[in-house]
Every structure is written in structure tokens, then in C-alpha cells.
């Protein structure tokens, strides 16, 4: 589904990713772990198409060259990024935002756009699954939401847009144990043979709830080690210091 070959990314003349390879197939869950500053969030940003990076190397997504696509086109083709710090957008109603977003994606997929009533029915259903109070949906997007509420809102959007590849950037940070379980349940309930996950995290704890097929250790812009779920526990004990 996603194949990254020798990816290099530079921002403000600083080389962050220094030749990264990654291959993700449908149905797989990959975790990227690594110390602060190793380039984890850069990888997420580059995959989403964020402006400001100079890119070398190849990223192919279901046969398409990602580098040719705009941010919204990537989203429409099924790449979803759950942000580490979801943005507050004052004045913009959450429901309206979600409906515009969903219909943009549906339109690109050649599906019929949803009318307001159908949309509201759908969103209420999804919100319930995640234990999100309906009232949040009529508030301004992320404005005044707690850290946990914002993260839950990200997962809600994921389930709504039904992406092929979901990238979770430090989704566990700022979550208490209950919220963490709800988020993890949300991910697990969405997981199937057709889609894939890339989970970026500093800690093992999210991986206790979402079992990865592969764990990659990112250090100084390169993947220095790849293993199965056990690698995470090992890292938890020994830390990142011994790797590089």
C-alpha cells in the first residue's frame, strides 16, 4: 500500500530524514518509535504533504507517486493524519467542518455527497461509539476542547472519513487511561484487512492496546532497527540510548 524508498526530507536547510525505507501492506499495523528529535513527526508531515519540506526519494501509495499530490488530494485518496496537536479553528462549527470534509472525500471517491440529515445521523452514531458527547459537535472546532477531547475528535474524523492509511502522530500523548482505551478501541474497531496503520509514538503504552505487526526504531532520521511487538517492551526496559 505504502512504499517509501530512500526518503530524505530537509526543512530550513536542515536534513531531518536521512534515507528512510518503509513498506506497509494492507491489514498491517506499523509502529514507529524513537527518541525526541529523531524525525518521527517529520515523517508524518511529509506523508501528509505539509508544505515547507524539500523531499528526495520515492513515496508510492497504491501505485501513485505521493510527491505529485496536494495535501487535500492525499487526504481524498485515503491518507489520514491524526495530529499530535489538533488545531483550533475559531468560529467554525465542528459539524459543518466534518460534513464539508466528508463530502470532499466522498466526492473524490465518486460517491454521492451526503445531505445534512443523513450526515447528522451518521456522525451521531460514530460519536456515540467513541463516547463523544453530541454537544461537542455543535461547538467550534477544537476550541476550548481538552487535550483528550481533541484526540478523540481526531479518531472520530478517522472513522468518518474511512481512510486506507491512518497515521497516528503521538495520539497517546495527553490522554488519561480511560481516554487512551477509548481511542485504542476506536482504532481496533476500525482495523480490517483492507486498511493499514502507522502509529508514531514515544512510549510503549499505546502499543499495549493496539498490537503492532512491526515496530521500527527511528533514530537520527533513519530506521535503525525493525522487529515485532516484543521490541517495544524491550525498548521500554533498555531505552533508546543503546540503539543507533
Amino acid at each position: 500500500m505504502l512504499k517509501i524508498t530512500n526518503l530524505k526530507a530537509t526543512i530550513n536547510e536542515k536534513l531531518i530524514l536521512k534515507g528512510l525505507d518503509l513498506d506497509i501492506k494492507p491489514g498491517e499495523v506499523h509502529a514507529i518509535m524513537g527518541p525526541n528529535g529523531s524525525g518521527k513527526s517529520t515523517l508524518a508531515n511529509v506523508l501528509s504533504g505539509k508544505n515547507g519540506y524539500e523531499i528526495e526519494g520515492e513515496i508510492s501509495f497504491n501505485g501513485m507517486n505521493l510527491n505529485d499530490l496536494k495535501i487535500e488530494e492525499r487526504a481524498q485518496k485515503g491518507i489520514f493524519l491524526a495530529f499530535q496537536y489538533p488545531l483550533e479553528i475559531p468560529g467554525v462549527n465542528t459539524n459543518i467542518f466534518l460534513k464539508t470534509s466528508l463530502n470532499s472525500v466522498r466526492k473524490a471517491r465518486g460517491e454521492k455527497e451526503l445531505d445534512t440529515l443523513t450526515f447528522l445521523k451518521l456522525i451521531k452514531e460514530k460519536a456515540k461509539e467513541l463516547n463523544i458527547d453530541e454537544k461537542f459537535l455543535s461547538r467550534q472546532l477544537n476550541v476550548g476542547f481538552s487535550g483528550g477531547e481533541k484526540k478523540k475528535n481526531e479518531i472520530l474524523q478517522m472513522k468518518l472519513l474511512e481512510p486506507k492509511l491512518s497515521i497516528l502522530d503521538e495520539t497517546d500523548s495527553g490522554l488519561d487511561i480511560d481516554a487512551l482505551r477509548i481511542v485504542a478501541d476506536g482504532v481496533n474497531s476500525y482495523k480490517n484487512k483492507e486498511n493499514a496503520f502507522l502509529i508514531i509514538t514515544h512510549y510503549q503504552r499505546l502499543l499495549d492496546y493496539i498490537k503492532p505487526d512491526f515496530i521500527h526504531v527511528l533514530s537520527a532520521g533513519k530506521i535503525v532497527k525493525t522487529g515485532n511487538a516484543d521490541l517495544g517492551e524491550q525498548l521500554e526496559k533498555t531505552g533508546y540510548a543503546n540503539l543507533s
Binding site: S48, K50, K70, I89, T100, V105, L161
Partner: peptide, 26 residues
């Protein structure tokens, strides 16, 4: 950053601008 967020959710530039500006004017 707000534009980027909207783009990542599949909104094109014009939709994103319109949404944010309408929010600004709410």
C-alpha cells in the same frame, strides 16, 4: 496551520479559505 489541517481533511484551498474566513466572520 489551519489551512494545512483543513487540507489534510480533504478540503481544497478554496473550501478551506472559505471555511476559515467564515469562521473569522461568524
Amino acid at each position: 496551520e489551519q489551512l494545512y489541517y483543513c487540507n489534510q481533511r480533504g478540503l481544497d484551498q478554496e473550501e478551506a479559505v472559505s471555511l476559515i474566513v467564515n469562521g473569522f466572520c461568524k
